[in-house]
Amino acid sequence: MDKGRRGKDLRIGDPERERAMTLLGEHFTAGRLEVHEYDERCRLAAAARFASEVDALFEDLPAPHPEDPAVPAPARTPRPSAEAQRIGGRVVLLVCAAAMVVLLVVIAKQFALPLLVPLLAVFWFSSRR
C-alpha cells in the first residue's frame, strides 16, 4: 500500500477520475497548467486508485477541486419492484400477442385460426404463473 496516503483513504472509481480530468481541463483552459503538466496530471488522474492521489494533483491549484461539494453526486434511480417487473412483462406479452393476432388476421386469413390456438395457449400459460 502507499505510505503517503492519509488515514482512511477511500478508493475512487471512474466517475471521480473523469471529474478530476475535467477539472484539470478547466485549469488548463484558464492557463494555469502548461501542456506537459496537464498531460502528466491527466495521466496520473487516470491511474489514481485513492482520493488522496487525486487531491495531490490539485494542491497547487485554486478552486475548483474534485472534493468541492458544489457538484452533487449523481442520484441513483430506484429499481422497479419485482411485482412491477412482472406486471410490465405481462403488458409486453399482451401487446405482442395483440400485434400477432392482428398480423395473422390481416395477412394469413385462412391460416389464422390454426396459428392463433398455439399463440393463445402460450399467453394463457404465461399469464397463469
Rank of each mutant, 00 (worst) to 15 (best):
M1Q: 11
M1P: 11
M1G: 15
D2M: 04
D2Y: 03
D2E: 09
K3W: 10
K3P: 11
K3L: 14
G4T: 08
G4E: 11
R5E: 06
G7T: 05
K8G: 13
K8A: 11
K8D: 12
D9A: 05
D9W: 00
D9H: 00
L10T: 10
L10V: 06
L10A: 13
R11W: 02
R11Q: 09
I12Q: 01
I12W: 00
I12C: 01
I12F: 03
G13Y: 05
D14E: 15
E16H: 11
E16N: 07
R19K: 14
R19E: 12
R19Q: 13
A20W: 02
T22W: 10
L23A: 05
L23F: 12
L23D: 01
L24E: 02
L24W: 00
L24H: 04
L24F: 04
L24P: 07
E26P: 05
E26V: 12
H27D: 08
F28T: 07
T29W: 10
L33P: 00
L33D: 01
L33V: 03
L33H: 00
V35Q: 15
H36P: 03
E37V: 05
E37Q: 15
D39S: 10
E40P: 04
E40A: 07
R41W: 01
C42W: 01
C42T: 13
L44C: 06
L44G: 00
A45I: 02
A45M: 00
A47V: 01
A48T: 03
R49M: 08
V54C: 05
D55M: 03
D55V: 05
D55W: 01
A56Q: 04
A56I: 04
A56M: 03
L57M: 02
F58Y: 08
D60V: 07
L61I: 01
L61W: 05
P62C: 08
A63N: 11
P64C: 04
E67K: 15
E67L: 13
P69L: 08
A70R: 11
A70E: 09
A70G: 10
V71F: 00
V71N: 03
P72V: 09
A73M: 11
P74T: 02
A75Y: 05
R76W: 08
T77S: 14
T77A: 15
T77R: 15
P78N: 03
S81M: 03
A82T: 09
E83T: 07
E83P: 00
Q85P: 02
R86Q: 09
I87E: 09
G89I: 00
R90H: 14
V91G: 07
V92G: 05
V92I: 13
L93D: 12
L93A: 15
V95C: 11
C96A: 14
A97T: 15
A98E: 12
A99G: 13
V101E: 10
V102H: 12
L104A: 06
L104G: 07
V105C: 13
V106F: 13
I107G: 10
I107K: 14
I107A: 15
A108W: 14
Q110T: 10
A112Y: 03
L113N: 07
P114F: 02
P114R: 04
P114D: 07
L115Q: 04
V117T: 10
L119K: 01
L119G: 02
L120P: 03
L120T: 13
V122K: 01
F123G: 09
F123D: 01
W124R: 14
F125W: 14
F125M: 12
S126K: 09
S126C: 10
S127P: 06
S127L: 13
R128T: 05
R129T: 02
R129Q: 08
